[in-house]
Design a protein around this nucleic acid. Structure first.
Length: 572
RNA sequence: GGGUCCGUAGCCUAGUGGAUAGGGCAACUGCCUUCUAAGCAGUGGGUCGGCGGUUCGAAUCCGCCCGGACCCGCCA
C-alpha cells in the first residue's frame, strides 16, 4: 500500500503547484475510518490555513485538479477530505504477489544493517523458581530479539543469573539448618522448586527467630571470603536451581546465546570504580560507603559499594556492562527489566555517561509493568506466586481435553505436541498482547481461555487456512486478481499488505503487542471472509485467486506468530 | 514530601491531534448434512477519572486536582 500512497502524494503535489512539499503531503495522508470512504484520504485543514479558504471548498476544487495515477480508480471530496479509491485488483494483486514471492521473508527488513545488539532478559534469582513475572519478561525478551533479528540486527540473547547476595544465603541457611541432607532426587522434586522451598522456609522461620537474619549475613561474609564449606553448599544449591531453570526454559522455548553469572562479575568493578573516583563522581560518605553523586543531575545519589567493601547489585552491573560492550563489540544493549527498576536504570546509565563510556547512550531499558494477581502482588517470599511450570501444565491439560473432543483417534505423540503448542500460544499471546508498560492483572479465567483474542484463535485461523490448501490440492496458478473485489477480500488483502509496516512499527516502539493486535485483526478478517465466501467450491477462475489469498494469509499469520515465538500449527 | 508510570462500558484492552472511540470476555438472539463452531452474524452496554487551557479539531498536547501502582544512598 505504501507505493500507492507515494503515487497519490505525487499527484496531489502536482495539483497544488508547490503549495506543500511532497513529504508534508505524505505525512498528512491518512487512511479513512471506514472502507466505504476509500483507501486514502488527504485532509485539507493545512491548506485551509494557508489559502484562507474553507477546507471543504478546497477539497472540492482540488479534487477536480488532481490527475489520477493509474492505481487510482476515483477520488471524492468528502467534507474537508479528499478520498482516494485504489483500483481493487491492484490492491489484491500487489498484496498477494508480494507475500507469495517473499514467503517467510515477507515482513523482514534490513533496517538494522547488521548492527550488533544484546537483549538481556529473564535474570532469575537462584532462590526462587520461575513464576509469572519471569514469563512476561522472557516472552518480551524473546519476541523483541526476534523482531530485531527480522529487521537485520545481529542479536545476542543474554541471561544474567543472580546467584549471589544475601537472599541466596537465606535459602542456603535454611537448607543447612533444616535440610537434613535431603536432595531433589531423594524428595523427587524439581530441583529449582526444591531450593525455592527453603527460601520460603527461611522467611517463615525468621519470623520466630530473628537471629537467623544475622546468621544469613554471616554466611554472606563467609561466602565473599571464600569459605570452603559455604562455597561448596552454594555450588550445590546453585546447580540445583539453574538445572531447574533450564528445564523450564526448554519447555517454554526460551533461549539464550550467553549466560552471565553475577558471582563472576560482582568483584570485577574496580576499574570502573576507580574511574568514577578520578572523575569525582564517586565519593565516600560519612559511613564509608561509596556514593555516585547524581543529585546535581536531577536524581538521588546511588550507593555503588557498601561501607564494608562488599558489593551490591549495581556493582555487578558496572563491571558486566563494560564487559558486554567491549567483549561483544555491541552497538546497543537492551535490558528487559520490570518498571520498578526505572530509576535504577536511569541512575546506572547516567553513571556510564558521567564516567565517560562512549557506549553510555546506547544503553536502553525495556521497562514493563508488574504482573499482579486478583489477590494482590505476587511474593516469592511468601510463596504466593503463579509458578511457571504449574501454569503450563494446567494449560496443557486443558488443551489436551479440547483436542480429544475434536479428534478422538489422535495419536499420543501428536496429541502431546499439539497440546503443548496450543498451551504455549495461549500464555505467550496473553502476556504479549497488552502494551508492555502497562501493569497486568492476571485473571486466571481469562488466561486459560482459548477463545476470543487469544493465541489459539490465531493458530486456529492459520490451521483453517492450511486445511483449505490441503484439500484444494491441484490449484491452478491465478492469471490475475480481478475476482477478489468483495469487501471481505479487499479488507484482508489490505491487511496482508500492511504487515511490513506493522513490523517496522513494532521495531521502532520495541512493542510486540503491535504484532498481536495485527494478528487479531487479520484473523478476524480471514474468518469473516471464510464464512461468507466458498473457496474450493468456487468456479475455477475465482478459486485459484481465492486460494492464493488463503495461502498468503496463512503465510502472514505464520510470519507474525514467529515474531512472537509462537508456533503456527497445521491442524487443531 | 519528591519522582516515574497508569486511569477508555460489569471485567480486560487497542487507539499519542483529525471523519460516528475499535476489539475481546461476560449477558442475550441466531447460524454446524457445505472448505475445522477454538468460528461467524447480530443486540444491549461509553460523562475516554474530573475541571480548566491550547487548537479549525483533544481519549491523544499543557496545567491543576482525584484514584491506583512502582521507586526515592549501602535489597535485587
Amino acid at each position: 500500500m505504501l507505493e500507492f500512497k507515494e503515487e497519490i502524494s505525487t499527484a496531489v503535489e502536482k495539483a497544488l503547484n508547490g503549495k506543500l512539499k511532497r513529504n508534508e503531503i505524505v505525512n498528512l495522508m491518512e487512511v479513512p475510518p471506514s472502507p466505504e470512504l476509500g483507501d486514502f484520504a488527504f485532509p485539507c485543514f493545512k491548506l485551509s490555513a494557508l489559502m484562507k479558504k474553507a477546507p471543504n471548498v478546497i477539497a472540492v476544487e482540488l479534487s477536480k485538479k488532481i490527475v489520477l495515477p493509474e492505481c487510482v480508480e476515483k477520488t471524492e471530496p468528502a467534507g474537508p477530505y479528499i478520498n482516494f479509491f485504489i483500483t481493487k485488483q491492484f490492491i489484491a494483486s500487489q498484496a498477494i504477489k508480494k507475500v507469495l514471492s517473499q514467503k517467510e521473508e515477507f515482513g523482514r527488513s534490513s533496517l538494522g544493517n547488521g548492527q550488533k545488539v544484546m537483549v538481556e532478559y529473564s535474570a532469575p534469582n537462584t532462590n526462587k523458581p520461575l513464576h509469572l513475572g519471569h514469563l512476561r519478561n522472557n516472552f518480551l525478551g524473546m519476541s523483541v530479539a526476534r523482531i530485531l533479528q527480522a529487521n537485520g540486527f545481529e542479536v545476542v540473547k543474554a541471561n544474567l543469573v543472580n546467584d549471589r547476595g544475601i537472599h541466596i544465603c537465606k535459602s542456603m541457611l535454611a537448607y543447612k539448618l533444616f535440610g537434613k541432607g535431603k536432595t531433589p532426587e531423594s524428595e523427587n522434586k524439581k530441583s529449582d522448586h526444591f531450593v525455592g522451598d527453603y527460601y520460603v522456609m527461611y522467611n517463615q522461620k525468621v519470623k520466630e527467630n530473628s537471629d537467623l537474619e544475622k546468621q544469613a549475613y554471616d554466611m554472606l561474609q563467609k561466602w565473599e571470603k571464600g569459605d570452603k564449606e559455604t562455597i561448596a553448599l552454594w555450588e550445590k544449591m546453585t546447580k540445583w536451581a539453574v538445572d531447574g531453570f533450564k528445564q523450564t526454559y526448554k519447555k517454554f522455548g526460551t533461549k539464550f546465546d550467553t549466560w552471565f553469572f553475577e558471582s563472576k562479575f560482582y568483584d570485577k568493578a574496580k576499574p570502573v570504580l576507580e574511574l568514577g573516583k578520578e572523575k569525582g563522581l564517586f565519593k565516600e560518605n560519612d559511613e564509608g560507603a561509596l556514593m555516585a553523586q547524581l543529585e546535581e543531575h536531577g536524581m538521588p545519589n546511588k550507593t555503588v559499594l557498601r561501607a564494608d567493601g562488599t558489593s551490591i547489585y549495581i556493582t555487578n552491573d558496572l563491571a558486566l556492562t563494560k564487559h558486554k560492550f567491549e567483549h561483544f563489540k555491541l552497538n546497543e544493549a537492551f535490558w528487559v527489566v520490570a518498571s520498578e527498576q526505572d530509576l535504577y536504570f536511569k541512575q546506572l546509565f547516567k553513571i556510564f555517561e558521567l564516567v565517560g563510556f562512549p557506549w553510555a547512550k546506547n544503553c536502553k531499558h525495556l521497562s514493563y509493568g508488574m504482573v499482579n494477581l486478583p489477590s494482590g502482588k505476587m511474593k516469592s517470599r511468601e510463596g504466593t506466586v503463579v509458578d511457571a511450570d504449574d501454569l503450563l501444565a494446567e494449560l496443557e491439560g486443558l488443551a489436551r481435553e479440547k483436542i480429544k473432543k475434536r479428534d478422538e483417534k489422535i495419536g499420543k505423540k501428536e496429541l502431546g505436541e499439539r497440546s503443548m503448542a496450543i498451551a504455549l500460544a495461549a500464555i505467550k499471546f496473553h502476556l504479549l498482547k497488552v502494551a508492555a508498560k502497562k501493569d497486568l492483572l492476571f485473571n486466571p479465567k481469562e488466561s486459560v481461555s482459548f477463545e476470543g483474542e487469544t493465541g489459539p484463535y490465531i493458530q486456529y485461523t492459520h490451521a483453517r487456512a492450511k486445511s483449505i490448501l490441503r484439500k484444494a490440492k491441484d490449484a491452478a496458478k491465478p492469471t490475475g486478481f480481478k475476482n477478489l473485489s468483495s469487501a471481505e477480500e479487499q479488507k484482508l488483502a489490505k491487511l496482508l499488505a500492511s504487515f511490513p509496516s506493522i513490523v517496522e512499527k513494532s521495531l521502532q516502539q520495541m512493542s510486540p503487542h503491535i504484532i498481536c493486535q495485527f494478528l487479531i485483526e487479520t484473523a478476524e478478517a480471514f474468518n469473516t471472509f471464510y464464512h461468507k465466501h466458498r473457496v474450493i467450491q468456487a468456479s475455477d477462475k475465482v478459486r485459484s485467486e481465492r486460494l492464493a489469498l488463503v495461502k498468503a494469509t496463512a503465510q502472514v499469520l505464520k510470519n507474525g506468530l514467529s515474531l512472537l515465538d509462537i508456533e503456527a500449527i497445521e491442524e487443531m
